[in-house]
């Protein structure tokens, strides 16, 4: 589904990613681990074209991202759901509106939005918080809204960048559980995280990054280091 071929990414003159080769298949659950600054977020941003690479290529379903025109990129993004590391919820919108807004952008009709959003929020466990604003929610609840938003347009790929960032263990496991469920329904999931215990529990593929390179890639991995 996704293939990185000798990908290098520079920020100004500083190398954030160097010679990355990686293949991720449909339906996989991949954990991306590594120290802060190792390049996890950068790697993910290249997939949904928030950042551009400097050399190499990234193929999604055999299509080179660099070959996509400005008008095609939005359609690539609609196939991907992203939970951003900095969450990016709009403070002046309720949970419902934050999710509905993303569906509007993707061109869904009002009726479908009104039908689907409460369901999705129920799936992520926020049935009672539909009309709450982000400021009225806990960190874990906000993460769930972000996950709901990422799922709203039924993506084939879910990218979750540190979705358990500041959460306690129980909350983190719940989020992880949620991601598993989504994966079991057929969505490919890439999870970037620091949380050692979490990764060790997953028992699925782990890609470990060190200073911009892929250091290990294990089918049933553990958090090394």
């Amino acid at each position: 589904m996704i293939r990185f071929e000798n990908v290098t990414k520079l920020y100004k003159d500083k190398k954030a990613l160097e010679d990355i080769n990686l293949e991720i298949n449909h339906g996989e659950f991949v954990s991306l681990v590594g120290q802060s600054g190792a390049g996890k977020s950068t790697l993910l941003k290249l997939i949904f074209a928030e950042e551009k690479l400097d050399s190499g290529r990234i193929l999604i379903d055999e299509v080179d991202i660099a070959s996509l025109s400005e008008t095609e990129i939005p359609y690539l993004r609609r196939k991907i759901g992203v939970v951003f590391q900095d969450i990016k919820l709009l403070p002046k919108k309720t949970a419902f509106e934050n999710v509905g807004f993303a569906m509007e952008v993707a061109g869904y009709a009002r009726e479908k939005i009104e039908r689907d959003v409460p369901r999705i929020l129920e799936i992520v466990g926020l049935k009672d918080k539909i009309m709450n604003f982000p400021a009225e929610m806990s960190g874990g609840e906000k993460q769930r809204v972000a996950i709901a938003r990422a799922l709203a347009h039924k993506p084939v790929l879910l990218i979750a960048d540190e979705p358990t960032g500041n959460l306690d263990e129980i909350n983190s496991y719940e989020i992880l559980d949620l991601l598993h469920k989504i994966n079991n329904l057929g969505t490919t999931v890439i999870l970037a995280t620091h949380a050692r215990d979490l990764v060790n529990k997953i028992q699925k593929r782990v890609v470990t990054m060190e200073t911009g390179r892929v250091a290990y890639d294990q089918a049933k991995g553990h958090y090394k280091l």
Partner: peptide, 16 residues
């Protein structure tokens, strides 16, 4: 600007 950034990232077309 925040809204615009998110719109872009969730797949809004330029004209939208």
């Amino acid at each position: 600007r925040e809204e615009v950034e998110i719109m872009k990232l969730v797949g809004a077309t330029n004209w939208y």
